[in-house]
């Protein structure tokens, strides 16, 4: 793939990482990432992926920017209030990094359009704020064999996990390695959201940010971790949060990685 003439300068700080290098930068450039939901989590995801040179971004959100979004959705400014989030985000990305292809969809992800939209991406980032959308992403990604990066927040806490990623299993779980192509039988998919929470909670059981409140920086932290996991997946790095769920508490800064594979004995 043809890289722009100034790419050595633009990406110098990450090209110097052995884990990235020229091959990694080309992988980032070729990658197609879909971000569903451009709120508190989606903003930092889009901003960091664009800055890092992820070449194709598919942005899905039906909402318009409101004044109450500005406290945590840091991609938007006061003059954007009333505008479609995906259009403001596209303009931002075009100013930030003109090499990136952005496609925007102002329809809500639905059972009807999920298959067609997912065909546009290699990996999906769930930045939604409701269970209906999250289970839809999970089931559509399971059907399409695509990995997705889950992130969600509740007051001062956050959760992040990578679901449905191709993994090559080994006796020692910590040695699990990520693979991009399923070419042999030892390759399996990491757990998905329904393996952890088989069914959505009851209506109104779990509050979202509009109902329980949130400080904007937490959305930035959790969204940034999601962006990191996307880049690790593209680069094929170890330590992906597959079969694990990271929890973060912003009050005491504790982070715990829960192993999702059940152990019955």
């Amino acid at each position: 793939m043809e890289m722009e003439p100034d790419f050595l300068d633009r990406y110098q700080r990450q090209l110097m990482l052995g884990e990235v290098g020229l091959g990694g930068q080309r992988a980032l450039r070729a990658a197609r990432v879909m971000v569903v939901g451009l709120g508190g989590l989606g903003c930092p995801v889009v901003q960091y992926l664009a800055a890092a040179g992820v070449g194709n971004l598919v942005l899905v959100d039906a909402d318009r920017v409101s004044l109450s979004n500005l406290q945590r959705q840091i991609l938007y400014t006061q003059k954007d209030v009333g505008e479609l989030k995906v259009e403001v985000a596209r303009d931002f990305v075009e100013r930030q990094n003109a090499q990136i292809q952005v496609s925007v969809y102002t329809e809500m992800l639905s059972a009807e359009n999920a298959t067609d939209l997912l065909a546009l991406a290699d990996i999906v980032v769930d930045c939604t704020d409701n269970f209906a959308a999250r289970y839809l992403i999970n089931d559509a990604c399971a059907a399409a064999n695509k990995p997705w990066v889950y992130g969600s927040i509740a007051k001062f806490e956050g959760q992040v996990a990578v679901f449905n990623a191709l993994m090559k299993s080994s006796a020692d779980e910590s040695q699990e390695i990520l693979v991009s192509q399923s070419s042999d039988e030892s390759v399996i998919r990491s757990l998905n959201y329904r393996d952890v929470f088989p069914n959505p909670p009851g209506e109104g059981e779990i509050q979202n940010c509009a109902e329980s409140g949130v400080l904007g920086a937490l959305a930035g932290i959790i969204g940034s971790i999601q962006g990191m996991e996307v880049m690790k997946w593209i680069l094929g790095l170890k330590g992906l949060l597959a079969n694990q769920m990271l929890t973060y508490n912003a009050i005491n800064h504790s982070m715990v990685k829960f192993q999702l594979r059940e152990n019955a004995d």
Binding site: D129, S152, Q159, N208, S212, F258, Q259, L260, A264
Partner: peptide, 28 residues
Amino acid sequence: AVNERFVVDEFEVLPGVIIALMPPFSGG
């Protein structure tokens, strides 16, 4: 979860372990 691993109903809980009660989160 018991000692940071999700467990099934049959799992045996022994003295001194750390139990976590983990709900799904919704906000984004």
